[in-house]
Simulated assay, not measured.
Amino acid sequence: MLSGPPVTTTVSADQLLERFLNANLRQRRSLLAQVQQRGQELRPLLAEQLDRLDATGDDWAPGALVQLLVAESDALAEAFWQRYPDGWLAVSSAQGVDYAPLQRALINGQFEEADRLTSAHLRQLAGADAETRGYVYYSEVPPMAAADLESLDRLWVVYSQGRFGFSVQLRLLRSLAGRWDQLWPRLGWKQAGVWTRYPNAFTWSLEAPEGHLPLVNQLRGVRLMDALLSHPALQRRVSA
């Protein structure tokens, strides 16, 4: 019997999408490239899928799909923004902060703008004195509302493929047994005392090291970042 060439089996777009959403972390990262390569096939399926996914969690897979959906300026992207003008992820604020601009920046991969907005939101959460002086004291962190720090962290995690966020930085710190001197190089920060936004000082893309963003002003040492990462809201998120 003659044998023909081997048959190549390609999963359908629906099957790929299901595999991606149900995969474990390691499998998902390997499937992400396929999802992005087959974006044209997948994009018409994403709006309906997003409506069924949990917008109150912190799974980064839906965030990656949102970014794929809005990657092109067409009717599909326009329909998404009409359906979710503030962004897909459901976030809340106990202090009346509007996180829609931050969510839109993250969705669009505008990480530098998102970082600036995050710094501004931390000043808002710290109070009028912090907004006037332009930076946050470490002593102003403990009273910050848990809901707001959770919202900020979830936004960064969901729209960075799980690479950025305060909880990511906290997990790295714990893995280093609390060694701040070892954390800075892991984050891609030159040293704790360096705080500059000059070009090339930081990487504003997913090519940055894990935990690279958001930035925290370290001009006065590690106290501010330590206060943030010690906040019960972030401690709960990492311990959950």
Rank of each mutant, 00 (worst) to 15 (best):
L173E: 09
V66W: 10
R29F: 11
L69F: 13
V168L: 07
R163G: 09
V158D: 11
R179F: 06
L122I: 01
S3I: 00
L106H: 15
S160E: 03
V168A: 13
W81L: 11
R133S: 06
L69C: 14
E140Y: 01
L228I: 00
D148T: 01
D86L: 05
V66F: 12
L76E: 14
A128N: 04
E18L: 03
L183C: 12
V238W: 05
A130R: 00
E18M: 01
S175R: 09
L187Q: 12
L32A: 15
W180R: 08
A33T: 06
Q67S: 13
R179A: 14
A100M: 12
W189T: 13
V136F: 06
R163D: 07
F111G: 11
R38E: 07
L45N: 13
L2W: 02
E18W: 04
L213E: 11
S119D: 11
L122H: 05
R43I: 00
N217L: 02
R38Q: 14
R104M: 13
Q103A: 13
S73Q: 14
S230C: 04
Q34H: 12
P185W: 10
A79N: 12
S139C: 02
D148N: 02
P62D: 14
S151M: 00
S73Y: 09
E150G: 02
A177C: 03
L69I: 05
L170D: 07
D74N: 15
E140L: 00
P199N: 13
R223C: 00
T10V: 04
L155I: 00
P62A: 13
D86K: 12
L16A: 08
L213C: 10
E72C: 10
S175M: 08
T9Q: 08
W195F: 14
D148Y: 02
L32T: 08
L53V: 08
D226C: 02
H121F: 09
A201G: 09
Q218P: 04
Q82A: 11
F20R: 07
A55D: 15
G211L: 05
A147Q: 08
L68Y: 13
N200A: 15
P6I: 02
Q37I: 04
A61L: 06
P143M: 06
A47V: 01
G96T: 10
A240S: 07
S12H: 05
D74P: 06
Q37P: 02
H212M: 11
G134E: 04
E72V: 08
L17E: 08
S119T: 01
D148C: 01
L69T: 09
A13N: 03
T203M: 13
G193Q: 12
G134Y: 02
A177E: 11
K190R: 15
Q191D: 14
W156S: 06
G162P: 03
Q95A: 15
Y99V: 04
V168E: 14
V91W: 10
V35C: 11
Q95S: 15
S73A: 14
A13P: 03
A146L: 00
A130T: 00
P199M: 15
L16Y: 08
S160K: 03
